[in-house]
């Protein structure tokens, strides 16, 4: 990769980048993951379950480490542990709206224990230490076509579920009591959402690593939430931001010596800061204007 240089001719850059099969797979996987995490993340932010999302991602690390140690490959480990943790959180703490304060204590406890397991697996699998960085901070190298297929299948399933249950989920997420009275099965949705979240976090982890899942899961959605209150528009913006972040970060990583996790997080965070700052400015101006008008 030392002989690649970014030029002003974007088309030529992209052609050059995509001449590498591993980059094509990285873009495919990144695109799928960006769409998936932007949509699910939008609901995570709405439901204020970002802490649960963080826990699931932290749990993914020992999963991936353990699976690598046992020879199954990191992706299956992410999925197994994230889904299992989602079930545990749902069964133990996910009563009602899934936003109880005692839930966070429980979730934190699980998180600590499983991180410790992760370090144990890393220690047991001595030759694996070099890969620890990728598991924690992400890598776009070595994404196989099979993994892309797995991610695509997952994305199709999750999108279908969201299309079917999006409105009841929105209702249950903003106003659980009224939703329940209106006949929305809020408990089933809580559980279902946690499972989908677990699968999404696993998928995102395979690109961003366990520790930087937030860059895709939360930041694009949080940015979109800040820009508009209209659900449909906000969801669309979230997806757009996720895609821009992933594509830009992959390109920047390819043409620079810095790692993917750094680019992804920085770009997503920059977008968030711009949106939050812009909104604060707009509100200040509106308020100032009102004061004048009075």
């Amino acid at each position: 990769m030392d002989d690649v240089h970014f030029s002003v001719n974007l088309v030529a850059d992209v052609v050059q980048m995509w001449s590498q099969p591993f980059m094509v797979n990285a873009f495919r996987a990144g695109t799928i993951v960006a769409v998936l995490s932007a949509l699910i993340g939008w609901f995570v932010v709405l439901r204020r379950q970002t802490f649960v999302g963080h826990t699931l991602s932290a749990v993914g690390f020992p999963g991936a480490a353990g699976a690598t140690w046992l020879g199954f490959g990191a992706l299956s480990g992410y999925f197994a542990f994230c889904l299992a943790a989602a079930v545990v959180i749902a069964l133990l703490g996910g009563r009602g709206s899934g936003r109880h304060s005692d839930e966070s204590a429980l979730v934190g406890t699980i998180q600590g224990f499983l991180l410790a397991c992760g370090f144990l697996f890393v220690a047991l699998y001595k030759g694996f230490l070099n890969g620890t960085n990728a598991l924690l901070f992400g890598s776009f190298l070595g994404i196989t076509s099979r993994q892309v297929v797995v991610l695509a299948v997952l994305a199709v399933v999750v999108l279908a579920l969201l299309a079917a249950g999006g409105r009841p989920l929105l209702f249950a997420s903003t106003d659980a009591e009224s939703a329940r009275v209106a006949g929305v099965p809020t408990r089933a949705l809580d559980l279902g959402f946690l499972l989908v979240l677990g699968a999404t976090v696993a998928a995102v982890s395979s690109i961003t690593g366990a520790l930087l899942v937030f860059a895709l899961l939360v930041l694009p959605a949080a940015t979109a939430h800040r820009l508009t209150a209209r659900p449909a528009r906000s969801l669309a913006l979230s997806v757009l931001f996720g895609l821009v972040a992933v594509w830009t970060a992959l390109t920047a990583t390819y043409y620079s010596p810095y790692p993917l996790g750094f680019w992804l997080t920085s770009i997503a965070f920059a977008g968030f800061v711009v949106a939050a700052g812009g909104r604060a400015l707009r509100e200040r101006r509106r308020r100032g204007f009102r004061r004048f008008a009075w």
Binding site: A164, R167, P168, T174, A182, H225, A229
Partner: peptide
């Protein structure tokens, strides 16, 4: 982050399945 009309709308079709 919801407008009043979005909240009212939930009462109309918030419990409907499908797009």
């Amino acid at each position: 982050r919801m407008r009043g009309v979005d909240v009212i709308r939930l009462g109309i079709d918030g419990s409907r399945w499908g797009l």
